[in-house]
Structure formats: C-alpha cells, structure tokens
C-alpha cells in the first residue's frame, strides 16, 4: 500500500478538505481517521476558499521513473463532492508568499492589478489579498515593487 494508511492503488477514500485553501498546512484529512494521509490531492478544481468539503477521492499509484526533483508521485485524485458548507468562524491562518521552485530561486507569489494585490496557489487558482492597516498595504507595495524589478 501507499502513504501512512497503506492505501491500495485504485482504492476509494473519503477526505475532509477545509476552508484554508492554500494555507500553510493545508492538507486533506483521511476519514474516518481525521489525519493527513501524506498523499497529495489532485484535480479538485472548483475548490473555493472559505468552504469545508467532504469529498471522494481515488488513490493513484505512480509507476513511472523517479525524477531528480521529486517529479510526479502517488496521489489522491478528486472524484466528487459529498458535501460542502461555508465556514462561519474567524480563526486566523498563515499563508506563505514565498515559494521554492526546483530548480531555481525562491519566488514571491504576489502581483498587483490596478489597486488589487493577487496571490496565486500551486493549483493556479488566484486569491486577492486585502488589508485594513495601511502599514500592511505599504509592505505589500514594497514587496511588489521589489518583485517587479
């Protein structure tokens, strides 16, 4: 089997995917254990920040050659939403604006469109970053100006 729960290739599983889309530690939890399976989830298009999901997924074992940079690997492939609900709490969470890309330098994942600051996730989905404190705005502007150059 694969991952810490010894999943079989092709096995159907249920996962909890929470509202903190793209946050540090954003990993699906395998049911009924409520623990990370240590296998990445792929193909969950349509996931929206702020919503908790119970989904179905299928374990897919990678049988190709191993790449120097880690390359593709075993994964859980999204196979449908069982339920979704809007998150109503106000818990804060952390987002990394720097991403390491192998091979290459670390990248700051931030751009400005008009007056909006945009961050994008590894899936390609984008999220706007807003602020109330003007000091945060000036820091984002500094990052963006440095990034642009």
């Amino acid at each position: 089997g694969y991952g810490r729960f010894n999943l079989k290739d092709g096995q159907e599983v249920e996962l909890l995917v929470d509202h903190k889309y793209g946050a540090i530690g954003d990993v699906p939890l395998l049911l009924p254990y409520n623990e990370a399976s240590e296998l990445p989830l792929s193909s969950f298009t349509g996931r929206k920040p702020g919503y908790n999901y119970k989904i179905k997924a299928r374990m897919s074992a990678y049988k190709g050659p191993i790449m120097m940079d880690g390359g593709p690997g075993h994964s859980l492939i999204f196979n449908g939403i069982i339920s979704e609900e809007r998150y109503l709490g106000d818990e804060s969470f952390r987002l990394s604006l720097v991403r390491s890309v192998v091979p290459g330098p670390n990248l700051v994942i931030l751009r400005k469109e008009g007056e909006k600051f945009i961050h994008w996730l590894e899936t390609g989905d984008e999220i706007e970053l807003t602020y109330k404190d003007p000091l945060i705005g000036s820091k984002l502007e500094e990052i963006w100006q440095f990034n642009k150059e």
């Binding site: 919503y51 106000d90 987002l95 720097v98 807003t130």
Partner: peptide, 30 residues
C-alpha cells in the same frame, strides 16, 4: 528573492468571501 520567507496571517475577508483573504500581519525573513 530578497526574502527567504514572507508569511501572512490572514482571515477570510467577509466583504469578499471566497475570493479574498484579509491580512492582519506580515512577517519577513531575509
């Protein structure tokens, strides 16, 4: 990049729910 890490502490932006994160704090490590 100039920064080794930039971490934003965020919540959901209630005025733009599902589309935006509201930043409460930014931490830099050069």
């Amino acid at each position: 990049s100039k920064w080794r890490s930039i971490t934003a502490t965020v919540t959901h932006d209630q005025e733009n729910f599902g589309r935006a994160y509201l930043i409460a704090d930014l931490n830099f490590m050069e």
